[in-house]
Amino acid sequence: MTDFDPTHQAGRRQALSCLAAWTGAAVVWSVTGGVPRALGATNSGVAAAGKTFTFVQISDTHIGFHKEANPDVAGSLRRAMTAINTLPDKPAFVVHTGDVTHLSKPEEFGQAKELLQELQVDRVHTVPGEHDTIDDGLSGYLKHFDHDGKGRGWYSFDQGGVHFIGLTNTLNFKMGTMTSLGDEQLAWLKKDLAQVSRSTPVVVLAHIPMWTVYAQWGWGTADADQALALLRPYGSVTVLNGHIHQVLQKVEGNIALHTAMSLAYPLPTPGQEGIGEPGPVKVPAGELGKLLGTRQLSLVRGKHELAMIDTPLEHA
């Protein structure tokens, strides 16, 4: 667990509700009455009610990347952290859904850990991305981000009436197929959920999407269905992923799955015509922090309403 100085600078930020960007996204969530909702200008009453806690998702910081698509990923992270630190509704913590580093180098983990300490929140919960587990599996990552001291990438915790689960789906790459969670982790998940009442909202963090976004690029998790089957009995399940550097969503009954934007560089849309591979997309100088896409707003029908606001680093 990473502990940070919980001091908070109150500030004011205009939350835009119809915009999204390739980079700089910070997804702000609140949980009220057991139902995750988004915080923003359009529903600030949630915060006013004072019965909520919020958390922020960041993803794919790729500390160590220094190519043309973004020569200053540390600067991008800093801009995002400044925005987070001045949120009018202080987040309880920040979650980072993986690819903290670009090449799993010790100095990259060290720099990332140091940078993230600028966040004025109590904790930062991370899950590893495949860029964090390249050469030696989890060992480099865990030196800085072993959340429960058990020497593994997956963990769970409870806060604000929500059960949070961090999963690792970057250790089982097999030739020609999508990644997987693996039997050991699935067994752990089953055991973990056995202690959670089905009315408890569950939030799952995992780097690679827990649904098949685009198999040809490996944008999916081969055994995600087994994990989702364990989650399906729960009344409210929110799965937060990274990896594809853009906002996509899928809703299956009570399970809502969302990918987040990156803080490093954009990637093409799944199978984007004329590109052919999921490499960094270069945009003109000055455009990186601006909006290039559209915001994804999701509402889960019935009593389990869920919405999301993506805020770009740079907006008009």
Binding site: F173, T179, Q216
Partner: peptide
Amino acid sequence: AALDTGDRFEHVFASEGDFSYFCTLHPF
């Protein structure tokens, strides 16, 4: 190891056979 831009990996195949390989970051 992870090959960054411009990095090389060299390997000598000593014996006969068919050796399939892939990128662990992008298994496709």
